[in-house]
Amino acid sequence: MSDDPSTFVLIALTVITAATPLVFAAMGELVTERSGVLNLGVEGMMLAGAVSSFLCVHLTGNAPLSLLVGTAAGIVMALLFGFLTLSLQASQVATGLALTIFGTGLSALVGQSLIGVAYEGLPKLSVPVLSDIPTLGPLLFQHDVLVYGSWLLVPAVAYFLNRTRGGLVLRAVGDSHDAAHALGYRVIRVRYLATLFGGACSGLAGAYLSMAYAPMWVENMSAGRGWIALALVVFAVWQPGWVLFGAYLFGGITILQLHGQGIGINVPSQLMSMLPYITTIVVLVLISLDQGRVRRNAPAAIGQAFHPTT
C-alpha cells in the first residue's frame, strides 16, 4: 500500500471484502428472479463453489482455473435446480431449500481432506499508476480480481437488463411467461440461462469466500451469507445498482458495529449484531414508500411454474 492509508480507507477496505460475496450472489439471484425463477438454494451453490475452487487451488495452485471451477460448480448445482423446477415443474421454493441441504452435505463430503489446508489468498492486482493515488488508489485500485469483477458485474447486468434485447426478453419472461410464450420466446430456455447465470455468480461468491475473504475451507463457511444475498435482491427491488448499495450497506453496518464494540460502546454485543438486519428492514420500508418503483421492477411471475402446453 502507498503511504499510510487513512482510517476511512481501512474501514472501507474491510467493508469491500465483506460485501463482495454478497454482491456476486445477489446479482446472480437478481437475474434468476427477473426471469421469474426463485432459487432459494444460493447458500448451497455458494458452498459448492467455495469447496470446489479451494480443492482446485490446493491441487493445482492455479488460481484462475480454480475460479473457473468454482463457477462451474455453481452452474452444475443450478443445472440440477433448473432440471427439477423448469423441466420437471417441481416447486421452486422447496427445491431451492433442498438444494441448500444437498450442497451443504456435498461440500462437507468433498472438503473432508481440506481441513487445515492453508492457502495464501488470491493475489492483489494493483492497477499501475492509479493505485499510487492517495486515498483513491488503495480504495479502488489495489484489489483482487473478484472485487473488480463485482464492480463490473453490476453495470454489466444493469446494461443487459435495461438496454439489450436479451434483457427485454428475460424481463418479459419474468413478468408474464404466457405472454412471452405467445410472442414466440422460449420461456424455459431463457429461464434455464438465467438460473445458470445465478449459479455461476453464487459459485463465484463461494470461491471468493474460500480463496480471498478467508482463504481456507471449513464446513458451512458461508455461514448464512446466501440468505442475506436473497434478502438483498428483495431489498434492491430487483435493481442491480441497489444490490450494490444494499450489499455495501449491510457490510458497512456489520463492520461499523464491530468498530463500535472496539471503541467500547456500552451496548450488549448481541444487540449491536442486530443492527445490520434492522437497518435493512428500515431502509426497505423507506424504499417501499416509492410504490411505483416496486411495482415496475418486481417480476410478476416469480416462483410460478411454466409449461408450454399449459
Partner: peptide
C-alpha cells in the same frame, strides 16, 4: 455430510415425482 446428500436426493425425488 452423507446424510445431507442423501436427504437432498430424497427431497429432489419427492418433489420431482409430483410432476
Amino acid at each position: 455430510a452423507v446424510t445431507g446428500v442423501f436427504q437432498g436426493m430424497l427431497l429432489f425425488f419427492l418433489l420431482a415425482a409430483d410432476v
